[in-house]
Computed example of a mutant assay.
Amino acid sequence: MIDTYDFGNIVINGQKYTSDVIVYPDQVRSNWWRREGHRLDPEDIRELVSWRPEVLIVGTGSMGCMKISPETEELLKSQEIELIAEPTPRACQIFNQISATRRAVAALHLTC
């Protein structure tokens, strides 16, 4: 459960993080880095895809600056993983709602 999000900070199950994260149902991977900071490419989510979520919720940053490459969209489609991409404040809300009933993972960019 994502408790709170504010630019550059997120609290998940009472634990504060100050770098980008991937949120799985049973764990949080902190210090998530992408090949290009404001672009989501297939290699940035390979680990996550192997987990086989039903839905991936991408937080594209406070103002939505992170873009998702067409190759990433195609990879997710080929794996039958639904993609929801929203600015991070909204992505956190969606994750909290969806994760109660679906196998969901969130990849969250905390700034920009």
Rank of each mutant, 00 (worst) to 15 (best):
I94E: 04
S78I: 05
S30N: 15
C92K: 01
M66D: 01
P70T: 12
P87M: 07
L76M: 11
I98L: 15
V55I: 15
A106R: 00
I84R: 12
R34Q: 06
L83T: 08
G61T: 04
E73G: 05
V58G: 05
D3V: 08
I98Q: 12
R90W: 11
L48A: 09
L56E: 05
T111M: 02
H38W: 07
K67V: 12
P70C: 02
T88W: 01
C112P: 07
R29E: 12
L76G: 05
I10R: 04
E74R: 11
I2D: 03
T4Y: 11
E80R: 12
V105N: 01
D41R: 04
E71L: 11
I68P: 01
N96D: 14
P53S: 09
R102T: 09
K77Y: 11
P87S: 01
E43D: 12
Y24I: 08
A100G: 15
L83Q: 05
N13R: 12
R35H: 14
S19H: 13
Y24P: 03
R46V: 14
V58A: 10
S30G: 11
A91K: 01
L83P: 02
I57S: 04
D26V: 05
R90M: 13
E47Q: 12
T101M: 02
P87Q: 06
R103L: 07
V58K: 02
I98T: 08
P70M: 06
V55N: 01
E82S: 08
G61M: 00
T4R: 09
R52M: 12
V105T: 04
V58L: 07
D41W: 14
I22R: 04
V28R: 01
W32H: 13
S19C: 05
T72S: 12
N13Q: 09
G61Y: 10
I57P: 05
D41Y: 14
L108T: 06
R46I: 12
E43F: 05
G64W: 08
W32Q: 04
D26M: 03
I45P: 01
T101A: 07
I81T: 06
C112F: 08
Q27R: 14
R102I: 06
K77N: 10
N13H: 03
E71K: 09
R102Y: 09
E54T: 08
V49H: 04
